[in-house]
């Protein structure tokens, strides 16, 4: 088991109002698995992904990722977790606009302490592998949505994470490009064995690529399902 969450809760305080974004959520993910997390907006699915990604910390409960308990980690350890264990992609890509495609990837390599000389070639290799060989020196503004998301995926994979966390990766893309990105993520999982957790509001796309899905509603898991056909 690569990841196991037990009774995970996350409570926000917005002024005096208490919001229970996640309530006692328990689940697990195996190495090489593709887990889809489905739910409407506000269901707590992004909160869950942020907890796995170490961007956020749980209010209570336990989450162990490759034998490390995230709920016990200090901020320095969490940064290391984000760097080494997970790679994240987002609906809005979150590329740094002033940096080229190549530079966005080399930045991640720099945080991973890859020697400067190796960074460029490694980043270029990654981008080519993901099908962006001609766009290395373009800035995010000059890239299409699909291309930008590919750069984001290349960046997420730069430091060889064990889990790829995708938060609505196709939310800003048209249907054709969405399909390409889904296929790409599926390939990474099936061919290269990268464990994937993908958040989406659309179960149809989830069914295409995931092995399993969990459905969240108001911060609680209301459905767990395996897609036998997908395997």
């Amino acid at each position: 088991m690569l990841l196991s969450a037990k009774n995970l809760s996350r409570t926000y305080h917005k002024g005096k109002v208490k919001i229970n974004a996640l309530k006692q959520v328990s689940f697990s993910v195996d190495e090489g698995e593709f887990l889809g997390i489905v739910g409407r907006s506000g269901s707590g699915k992004s909160t869950l992904l942020n907890l796995v990604g170490g961007l956020d910390t749980a209010t209570s409960g336990q989450m162990v990722v490759s034998e490390n308990d995230l709920t016990q980690m200090n901020r320095q350890d969490l940064a290391r977790h984000r760097l080494r264990t997970v790679g994240m992609i987002f609906q809005s890509f979150n590329l740094i606009p002033s940096r080229t495609a190549l530079e966005n990837v080399t930045l991640a390599l720099a945080f991973g302490n890859v020697p400067r000389k190796k960074r460029k070639s490694e980043a270029a290799d990654l981008l080519c592998r993901i099908g962006l060989s001609g766009r290395l020196d373009h800035r995010p503004g000059e890239l299409s949505g699909g291309e930008a998301q590919r750069v984001a995926i290349a960046r997420a994979l730069a430091n060889q994470p064990r889990i790829l966390l995708a938060d609505e990766p196709t939310g800003n893309l048209d249907s054709r490009t969405s399909q390409e990105i889904l296929d790409l993520i599926k390939n990474l999982n099936r061919e290269e064995g990268i464990t994937v957790m993908m958040v989406t509001h659309d179960e149809t796309s989830c069914r295409q690529v995931a092995h399993r899905m969990i459905r969240l509603l108001d911060g609680e898991i209301v459905e767990k399902k395996s897609y036998e056909a997908a395997k």
């Binding site: 901020r75 320095q76 940064a79 290391r80 760097l83 979150n94 930045l107 991640a108 945080f111 430091n159």
Partner: peptide, 12 residues
């Protein structure tokens, strides 16, 4: 935020 998400530590 992006730098933190891709593994940048507070110290960095």
């Amino acid at each position: 935020g992006i730098m933190k998400a891709i593994g940048g530590s507070e110290r960095e």
